[in-house]
């Protein structure tokens, strides 16, 4: 479980992001965070992943305060995929995966890493592109590689900040299916913008606005009123087959 208590944070002397945020994220579930731009979604993922540390309040992961964890311990517990990720155009897919798993002061990877990489290439269907440069593959494939770079690490928590950015609908569903498959054994938090993606895949949806959690609810219980309060838009929710809901804006 990830527990957040009285979280306060602001960037420098500027805008205050969190005034006093408290909520908890359940284990072995896919939690999607949605909310308008600038409501603190990305900042929250950065705090949970240990990227930002100058906050006040407490964040604990599996009953351990993350302040007490070193950057190395943190990397073994939480695997984080940033919203904005750069890449060296010349590095290949397989080299990217090796880099993530490589140990300190080694020229070559060991048999354990080799097995992990083989498994990841199967799991994320990277056989076709494994020897291509990152600059040679499509946006959807690139995002799958980044998800694989996070997923290849054996962590208990996976945090994805807007993993569906700039993807077409097919790739969005593919990526969300992969992310969903993580949550059968591990805890996954994903920031998404498409409410329908959240409704289709999430086990729980967190509605955020102005640094506060407005609602934390199962997809089936999401109402038009909640979306109205979060985004200030009118919409209709219709029931779809297979016990799913669709939001029409």
């Amino acid at each position: 479980m990830i527990e957040i208590k009285n979280l306060c944070f602001s960037y420098g002397k500027g805008r205050k992001i969190f005034k006093s945020l408290s909520f908890a994220i359940k284990e072995k579930k896919l939690t999607c965070i949605i909310g308008p731009n600038g409501c603190g979604k990305s900042t929250l993922t950065k705090i949970i992943s240990g990227i930002i540390s100058d906050y006040s309040g407490d964040v604990s992961v599996k009953n351990r305060n993350i302040r007490e964890l070193s950057f190395f311990e943190m990397s073994k517990i939480v695997s984080y995929l940033p919203q904005k990720i750069f890449y060296d155009p010349d590095i290949t897919v397989i080299e990217s995966l090796i880099s993530v798993l490589s140990k300190d002061f080694t020229f070559e990877f060991g048999p354990k890493q080799k097995k992990q990489i083989e498994k990841a290439i199967d799991r994320f269907a990277l056989h076709e592109i494994k020897d291509k440069k990152l600059s040679e593959i499509s946006g959807g494939e690139l995002q799958r590689v980044f998800i694989a770079m996070s997923g290849v690490r054996d962590c208990e928590f996976y945090v994805f900040d807007e993993p569906l950015n700039n993807l077409d609908i097919k790739n969005q569903i593919d990526i969300m299916s992969i992310i969903k498959s993580f949550s059968f054994e591990r805890t996954v938090i994903a920031v998404v913008h498409d409410i329908n993606m959240a409704l289709k895949f999430a086990d729980e949806i967190v509605f955020m606005k102005n640094g506060d959690v407005l609602f934390q609810i199962e997809p089936l219980k999401v109402s038009e009123d909640m979306i109205k309060k979060t985004f200030d838009i009118d919409c209709n929710i219709i029931n779809a087959p297979k016990n799913e809901k669709i939001v029409l804006v």
Binding site: G50, M74, S75, S79, Y80, P82, F86, M149
Partner: peptide, 11 residues
Amino acid sequence: GFGADFLKNSG
């Protein structure tokens, strides 16, 4: 090469 945020969580 993958940027500061990725690096900071990489261990």
